[in-house]
Amino acid sequence: MSAQEEAKFELEERVSHLEVPEIAKDSLCLLIPSTTRIRWYKDISHIGQTYEAKFKHEGSRYSVEFDSLGHLADIEVELSWKHMQASEKTALNRSFSSIQGFKLQRIQAQWTGRVIDLTRRDGSNGLIPKAMAYEVEFKGEMNERFAYWEGLFTPEGELLDLKEVLLKDVENLNLN
């Protein structure tokens, strides 16, 4: 969970898979088959309750979020910039180069929508390969502030949303 999300959530607790709605587990099996060692969390905030599955699959870290009834909210996959395809990088790079002092911290591919729309159509199950957006944590100057930011970019490089990352939970590093 990113620092921004930490600030957003009031409570996050690890839960057993038995507590998770069946529809969420079925959707996960369909989207990312043969996944093992899934850790389930329940996030409770002022806007409600969600379930989150975290796991590693084919070398990448996944985070899949569902609403309280088990309907898919989004899928996030940690990416390595080095290993991303050139076509994916080109459009993003165009946006990044316009940000003063840009330094990439973290990039995640994001999928949102209905399970049926995100499942491969060739009968093999699994997630469609083309990401719908990229969540990018970076350092740089935005809105006349040099800080850490979390931006949501389309695959074409358009910035959809921007939030400053508040690095929280640092008392054990700064105070003692």
């Binding site: 911290q105 690095l167 640092v170 590093l173 700064n174």
Partner: peptide
């Protein structure tokens, strides 16, 4: 104090 987020860890 300043904290730098890195991929998978933080430097304080």
């Amino acid at each position: 104090a300043w904290v730098q987020p890195k991929e998978g860890y933080r430097i304080a």
